[in-house]
Amino acid sequence: MKRFLVSCVLVLAGSSLRGQNPPLVLEKTIYLPAVQGKFDHFAVDEAGNRIFAAATGNKSVEVIDLGSGKILQSLTGLGKPHGLAWMASTGQLFVADGASGVLDLYGGAPLGLVKSIPLSEDADDMVYDASSGLLYVGHGGSDAAHPGRIAVIDTKNLTQKASISATSHPEELEVDKSTDRVFANIADAAEISVIDGRTAMQSTIWKLTGAKNNVPLAYDEEQHILFVACRTPARLLVLDGDTGKQLANLPSDPGADDLFYDAETHQVYLIAGSGAIDVYRTDEKNVKAAGVIHTAAGAKTGLFVRSRKTLYVGVPGSGESAASILVYSTR
């Protein structure tokens, strides 16, 4: 792995690099006046042209038509929906409910609750490995009585295959399909848990240096590069995906909560709750800031859909201000 040469100058908020096309273009805004509070994670049904939004503040999951921008269905009765995963092959939606400590499965048309799989408090982010049919879900970790765990769910028979220990609460997870590994951000411990997908066991732990409170991450499978966004201080760390060695440390906006890598444009999109999307460009030898896009305070999560060349960002609703989804083109 070649060492990255780092450009440490972050472009001023709201601007992009002069003489270049903007890294993101706002195409439209989907307004959701019935939704209050913040969003957490999103999922997409590409065949059905729908996006699913975990409206945590609204205690619901909103099913939204991407063509009309209208809410097709609201899944209510949830405590604190966090992670979402859509199974296109079965037409089913998995929802991690942090308040109830369960993984809910919805299916049918309209979507209805099919099954709840018990986990523990603060069931959170999840990642699906399509090659194995396994779903990895982080939960627990608030105190000694509720240790951090990563549940391994067999999505074919809807059972928990394994439970992997974590030092504390697992935040975002990512799959490396080429090596059958799963990376899990363990924010309170400033470490990354590396899981062997073949054995469903932790193979190693990478300790971070220079920053902590690492919440989101993203992976460049071609170059074997792991991007890790930290909140304390606000930095983007670049790691060798084979060894965990730190290759770069760049500034970012505060409150990182979602992170995506675009393999086509070689861009990284860091969504920060302070109201910004930090964009970085990478190649084989370097990573540099490519611009900062203003969003809104509290707009901390979203979804990048590579096939659509689109980045969706959720903006919370409060009082008379409607919640919305910002739709950016990455072309």
Rank of each mutant, 00 (worst) to 15 (best):
V25Y: 09
D97K: 03
L113M: 07
D257H: 13
V292A: 15
I117R: 02
G101Y: 06
V292R: 15
A248M: 04
P110V: 02
D124R: 08
D257E: 14
R281T: 09
P251H: 15
L17K: 15
Y312M: 11
L105W: 00
R3F: 13
V114G: 03
F94G: 03
K212R: 10
V327C: 12
I150C: 07
L250V: 06
W206R: 11
S324I: 11
S132Q: 01
A162W: 00
I271M: 09
H169E: 04
L72R: 15
L326F: 14
V6E: 15
S321D: 11
T179P: 00
S329Q: 12
Y128G: 06
Q267W: 12
V25M: 11
P147D: 09
G57T: 13
C8N: 12
L26N: 04
L66K: 15
V25Q: 14
F42W: 07
Q36N: 13
D65H: 09
N58K: 06
G241F: 04
V313L: 07
P23E: 03
A151N: 04
F227D: 04
P33K: 02
Q92Y: 06
T179D: 01
Q223M: 13
G69I: 05
T310N: 05
L303V: 02
W206L: 12
A162P: 01
G14F: 01
M1C: 05
G112K: 10
L113G: 02
S324F: 11
L24Y: 07
Y280A: 06
F94C: 01
V228D: 13
S16N: 14
G108F: 02
V287M: 04
A123E: 00
V152L: 01
A190H: 04
A218R: 11
A88P: 14
L236F: 08
V327M: 09
R181A: 01
L17I: 15
K212D: 14
D122K: 14
K285I: 06
I192E: 01
